[in-house]
Computed example of a mutant assay.
Amino acid sequence: MNKITLLVLIFCSISIFSQDKNQQENFIDVAESKCFDKKEITNAQMLECTIKAGQSWDKELNKYYNLLAAKLPKDAFETLKASQKEWIIYRDKEFKFISKLYYEVKDGTM
């Protein structure tokens, strides 16, 4: 494992485990929560709130991905790129499973 990869893994581990419980929520999560706080919200409106939050998170991820692309050595970035492609495959399979679970196995929505 090269030094850059090791440093990225260490940074991610520290970030995850050192988060303060009193830390402010991310602005995307706050916006999604406010969207859900309507008095009478339909499932379609909840879905729209979630879609908007997902789009915002996608922009945020792309922002940092592009920053890493500009900063990392080429070989380290290629490793990152490959891992992100694998993550996308995992994410898509996870969503497919969740859809099957709630729409086919449980016969409806949550």
Rank of each mutant, 00 (worst) to 15 (best):
R91K: 05
A82W: 12
K96W: 04
D75Q: 06
K93I: 00
P73I: 13
F95P: 00
K85E: 13
R91I: 10
E78V: 06
F77D: 15
F77E: 13
K81V: 01
S99Q: 12
E86G: 07
R91E: 13
I98A: 07
I98N: 03
L101G: 01
F77S: 13
S83R: 15
S83E: 14
K93H: 04
K96T: 08
D92P: 00
K100G: 03
Y102M: 08
I98W: 05
F77T: 15
E94D: 02
L101S: 00
I88V: 15
L80I: 10
A82K: 15
I88H: 12
K74F: 07
E104N: 09
R91V: 11
A76V: 03
P73Q: 13
S99K: 15
K100Q: 01
T79S: 09
I98E: 07
T79P: 03
A82Y: 14
W87R: 14
K81C: 02
E94Y: 06
Y90K: 10
I88M: 14
E86L: 12
S99H: 13
I88K: 09
D92T: 04
Y102K: 09
E94S: 07
I89P: 00
E94G: 01
D75T: 09
I98L: 07
E86I: 11
L80N: 02
A76G: 03
K74W: 07
E78I: 02
F77Q: 14
F97P: 00
E78C: 03
I89Q: 06
K81R: 13
K96P: 00
I98P: 00
F77V: 14
D75Y: 01
K74N: 09
K74Q: 12
W87D: 12
F97I: 03
K96S: 11
Y103T: 12
T79Y: 05
F95C: 02
I89E: 08
S83N: 15
Y102P: 00
F95E: 09
K93Y: 02
Y103H: 11
K96Y: 02
T79V: 10
D75G: 01
T79G: 06
A76F: 03
K96A: 10
Y102D: 08
R91F: 10
A82P: 04
S83K: 15
E104A: 00
K96Q: 06
Y90I: 07
L101P: 01
E78D: 10
W87I: 15
I88C: 09
E104G: 00
K85W: 04
T79M: 08
K74T: 12
L101D: 02
D92M: 03
A76M: 03
K96V: 00
L80H: 04
A82M: 14
K74R: 07
I89A: 05
F97N: 03
D75E: 14
D75H: 03
I98K: 08
K100S: 06
L101I: 02
K74Y: 06
K100V: 02
F95N: 10
A82R: 14
E78W: 03
I89K: 11
K100H: 07
Y90W: 07
L101M: 06
I98D: 04
Q84G: 10
I98F: 06
